[in-house]
């Protein structure tokens, strides 16, 4: 009897539709997020993340509608991110049926959003998403991370979808997020995102070892063993993936079966 490791499919939404195409939904446009989430639910997904990449005020109603429809059908934990800048945004999304909200750029710009959100809605509701990138300009105040090839770097938090460096040390930021009441950290490395070469193990392991809250690894998964590496060498509590599921490379069930044969506790 142990807490199982979670597999979390992530759906990127634009104007209320899934942006990336899928193999297993033969739809003319990208697909209905609730239908797709239902499919992942049947495959054994442990949670579902909806990321609103439109994230404009005008589109707020669209994401609310998606969350409501998903919550009415799924009976599965739902996390929603994208464009959440204020407690009111959180309230609306949680009332619509989400269990957690994920904040990224807005938390960097105003860290009190984490503490205010945690106080009002509970720490378990607040996921701090962070995008990070390697920086090789070393200095003593940075948390230095060793890479497998022997080089050393520190990881810098980047915002606006990875386009803007902040000068903030990722490990220090993860610790601050925890101390401000974040319930979970969703870590995406810009080094590995989209590469299909596997998660960024050094930073995932470093952050997971430094904080006492769960860490979700994200970015770069391409093979079944990459999930295994994320949980073992990366010490992640959950692994998130998008394209490998959307394009039908493998199902959530296949991932979990593979993990189970390699001794990782999963819910099958």
């Amino acid at each position: 009897m142990v807490l199982t490791k979670r597999i979390i499919p992530c759906l990127d939404l634009k104007d209320g539709r899934v942006v990336k195409g899928t193999n297993f939904l033969n739809l003319r446009d990208a697909g209905d997020p609730v239908e797709l989430a239902q499919r992942y639910n049947e495959q054994g997904a442990d949670e579902v993340v909806f990321l609103d990449i439109t994230a404009s005020k005008e589109q707020r109603g669209t994401i609310i509608d998606v969350v409501q429809r998903a919550a009415d059908q799924l009976f599965l934990p739902l996390t929603v991110g994208g464009g959440i800048r204020a407690l009111d945004d959180m309230q609306q999304i949680l009332r619509a049926g989400a269990d957690k909200v994920s904040i990224n750029t807005s938390a960097v710009q105003d860290p009190t959003l984490i503490s205010r959100g945690a106080e009002r809605f509970g720490t378990q509701c607040i996921v701090v998403a962070m995008d990070v990138r390697r920086n090789f300009e070393l200095s003593p105040e940075r948390n230095i991370v060793g890479l497998p090839d022997g080089r050393e770097c520190w990881y810098e938090v980047v915002i606006y979808g990875g386009s803007k460096p902040t000068g903030i040390d990722a490990i220090a930021w993860a610790e601050e997020a925890e101390s401000r009441g974040a319930g979970e950290i969703l870590l995406t490395s810009m080094e590995t995102d989209g590469t299909k070469n596997g998660f960024d193990i050094p930073i995932t392991s470093a952050i997971s070892g430094r904080v006492g809250i769960p860490v979700i690894a994200s970015g770069g998964v391409g093979t079944l063993d990459h999930f295994y590496d994320g949980f073992t060498a990366g010490r992640a509590d959950a692994c998130l993936a998008a394209s490998v599921f959307h394009y039908g490379e493998f199902t959530v069930h296949q991932v979990k079966e593979h993990l189970a044969t390699r001794g990782i506790p999963v819910r099958l």
Partner: peptide, 12 residues
């Protein structure tokens, strides 16, 4: 051991 206890676990 992370807290919160978050995720799927068994009930006996």
């Amino acid at each position: 051991m992370k807290v919160p206890h978050m995720g799927w676990n068994t009930i006996r």
